[in-house]
Amino acid sequence: MSDIDTAKSLTGLLNGIAQKAYHNHGEVTEDLLRTELYPDLSPEDFHALHDKMRGLLKSIAMADMDPGQLEAFLTAQMKRQGGGGMSEGQASALSRFWRSQRARVRESLLAQSRWEPGLRGLAWRVDLQTSSGRGPEAAPGGPVALLELELGRPSQVSEYVCLECDEVTVNQVLKKMADIQRSIDTVVHRS
Rank of each mutant, 00 (worst) to 15 (best):
S92V: 02
K79E: 07
I17W: 03
K8H: 14
L33Y: 02
Q172T: 07
R106A: 11
L151G: 07
A93C: 13
S92P: 02
G141T: 02
Y38L: 08
L56S: 11
A76W: 01
P154Y: 06
A91E: 00
V105R: 10
A48P: 00
G68P: 05
A111V: 07
V173F: 05
L110M: 05
R106N: 10
H25E: 13
S42N: 09
V187P: 03
D3N: 15
F46Y: 12
H189C: 00
Q19R: 15
L74Y: 01
A18C: 01
F46K: 12
A103P: 03
G152L: 00
D40T: 12
Q69F: 09
I4D: 14
V168W: 13
V161I: 10
C162Y: 10
I4F: 13
L149Q: 05
Q77T: 00
F73K: 12
E148I: 02
P117L: 03
D64R: 10
L94F: 02
S42C: 04
S95M: 01
D64P: 02
E137P: 07
A178P: 04
Y38A: 09
D185S: 07
H25V: 08
R190P: 00
E44S: 11
A48T: 04
L109R: 14
E71T: 12
S100Q: 06
S132V: 01
M78R: 14
P43D: 10
S183P: 12
A72G: 09
L13A: 12
A178K: 10
Q172M: 06
H47E: 15
K20Q: 08
K20N: 07
E71V: 10
G12R: 03
L10N: 09
A61V: 01
V188A: 10
L32S: 12
R54C: 02
P67A: 01
G89R: 03
R34N: 12
E116C: 05
L33C: 09
G26D: 15
M65K: 07
A76S: 03
E148V: 04
T186W: 00
L13I: 00
E137S: 13
E159G: 06
R114C: 03
P117H: 08
G26N: 11
V161M: 12
G152W: 00
R80I: 07
L119M: 01
T29C: 03
E107N: 13
S2Y: 11
D51N: 12
V173M: 04
G12C: 02
G135V: 00
R120I: 00
D127H: 06
Y38E: 02
L109Y: 10
S9N: 11
P154R: 09
N15S: 09
L70R: 05
K79C: 01
R182Q: 14
L70C: 05
L49G: 06
A7R: 15
L174D: 08
E148Y: 06
A103T: 15
G118K: 13
A111R: 14
G133V: 01
A72S: 13
E88L: 02
K175W: 03
L119N: 02
G133S: 10
F73I: 01
G12Y: 01
D40S: 15
L37W: 07
A63D: 06
Q181S: 15
